[in-house]
């Protein structure tokens, strides 16, 4: 009975820390509308991922400004060729509002020669940087915002954000894989909290998560572990 209640207060503690973070962010009221916009995009990302070739294009535009123009044209041509639906028109309007610059580029779509050239350049570029399609799985601004929440004075370079983005991806892959191994051992189909907690308790590298993901154990077992490992001081 008592052991089952133990994880709940700890979770509450984490919530309290979150509340303190939100208080810190009161000074950043201007950022709230941006986050709302980001949400809609975040909701869309899983669908874009399913089209791998298209995902590969986005980081290219982010990297090279010169290449942005032809790529934008390519995407517009695709949308123009397909019969329009209500959803498309709405999104076209949204895109037009967000980027007035595109309006100047629209007349170019009518040129047949430009389409052919764009298609040729697409293939070349796509093949060259297919690997980079995996980049930026998580929104970079979100990572930056989280880091600012920790220490507003901290400055982080763009490359450091990229490094953290990739580090998080690898961490998540490995953590999921190890948790699923325990899931299989228990002969269950659903990956649950206990499997995550088991990974955290078994590997030393995940000690920093032990406060967030404590393993649920009976009081008797907990007392035994303390006496054996001498962790009573913590």
């Amino acid at each position: 009975m008592t052991s089952s209640n133990s994880p709940k207060p700890e979770k509450k503690i984490t919530k309290n820390t979150e509340i303190s973070k939100t208080q810190k962010k009161k000074t950043k009221n201007a950022e709230t509308p941006k986050t709302e916009k980001k949400k809609t995009k975040n909701a869309e990302t899983p669908k874009t991922e399913k089209k791998k070739t298209k995902n590969a294009e986005t980081p290219k535009t982010e990297k090279k400004k010169n290449a942005e123009i032809p790529k934008i044209e390519k995407k517009k041509t695709k949308s123009a060729e397909i019969p329009l639906t209500d959803g498309k028109t709405k999104r076209d309007r949204e895109i037009a509002k967000e980027e007035n610059k595109k309006k100047t580029k629209k007349p170019k779509l009518s040129n047949g020669t430009s389409k052919q050239r764009d298609e040729g350049s697409k293939k070349g570029v796509a093949e060259g940087k297919g690997e980079e399609g995996k980049m930026n799985v998580f929104p970079m601004n979100r990572i930056r915002t989280m880091i600012k929440g920790e220490d507003p004075d901290m400055r982080v370079s763009q490359e450091a954000l990229l490094a953290i983005n990739n580090a998080v991806e690898k961490f998540l892959e490995q953590f999921s894989q190890e948790a699923y191994a325990f899931c299989v051992r228990d002969r269950k189909k659903c990956l649950s909290y206990d499997h995550l907690a088991h990974v955290v308790s078994k590997q030393r590298r995940y000690d920093f998560l032990s406060d967030f993901v404590p393993e649920r154990v009976k009081a008797e077992d907990a007392l035994r572990e303390r006496s054996a490992a001498g962790t009573g001081g913590h």
Binding site: K41, T45, K47, N55, T58, K75, E99
Partner: peptide, 8 residues
């Protein structure tokens, strides 16, 4: 924003 134009 560009990938979003394809899902429609």
């Amino acid at each position: 924003t560009h990938p979003h134009s394809h899902p429609p």
